[in-house]
Amino acid sequence: MFTNIIVKIGQKFIHMIESIGRIVLFFLIGAMNVFLLPFQFKKVLDQIWFIGTKSIFVVALTGIFTGMVIGLQGYYSLVKFGSEAALGSAVSLTLIRELGPVFTAIMITARAGSAMAAEIGVMRISEQIDALNTMHINPVRFLFTPRIIAAIISFPLLTALFDVIGILGGYISGSIMLGINRYVYMDTVIKSVRVSDIAGGFYKAFAFSIIVTTLCCYRGYYTHFFNGFGARGVSLSTTNAVVQSCVLILISDYIITLFLV
């Protein structure tokens, strides 16, 4: 009985180590291909369109409401201490340091990450990835490399958009709805945000872009390893990709913050 438990834990541990090894190799092969010619310019542009441009609306929508909620909550907390003038500072720093990169990454995971996992998963079960192999085309280079380049470009830009629109949301609830002087709000935003805060947000966005793209593409690519060949396999891969990406975003956010503060 006790031995069985140890064996099962051991098996799980070995399985986990193997998975981590496969993910790292998958990422390294994709990353190395970034530097190999010919550069896949058109494919990268297509992916920027899909991951970046098509996510603008959802990122902007979440950004404005997140900013408005922080503005609202922040106002009622700060007003107790007579510090409502610091609302601009509270909203901007919360967004730029933490919520901007994290919420943007989660929204992109939900919109584009799930699609990546599902699309590549379907390609696996319908033998399209085998077809690439038979045509002597490196499937990781063909499918993953353009996506990771596009994500590294798109994530920080969308994070910046989220931050700016979030600060605008804070302005709407703080100044327009609750009456804080608009010059005071903007002045505290400008004075409190330092370049290191913005850079920290971008470091996070960069890290999240790698995590989300690698995990979602990996899950789709190895659909048959975990869940077999079939529609159910693809749906499970997609679910796992999204859940694991979101969890890893939050864990890595904490780790990066530890180094930044």
Partner: peptide, 22 residues
């Protein structure tokens, strides 16, 4: 391939040209 394994996101020209283009 049995199920053709054509790429949904590429048009017919790009599907046929793929092994040459890559």
């Amino acid at each position: 391939f049995q199920e053709n394994a054509l790429f949904d996101f590429l048009n017919i020209y790009d599907n046929i040209a793929l092994p040459l283009a890559e």
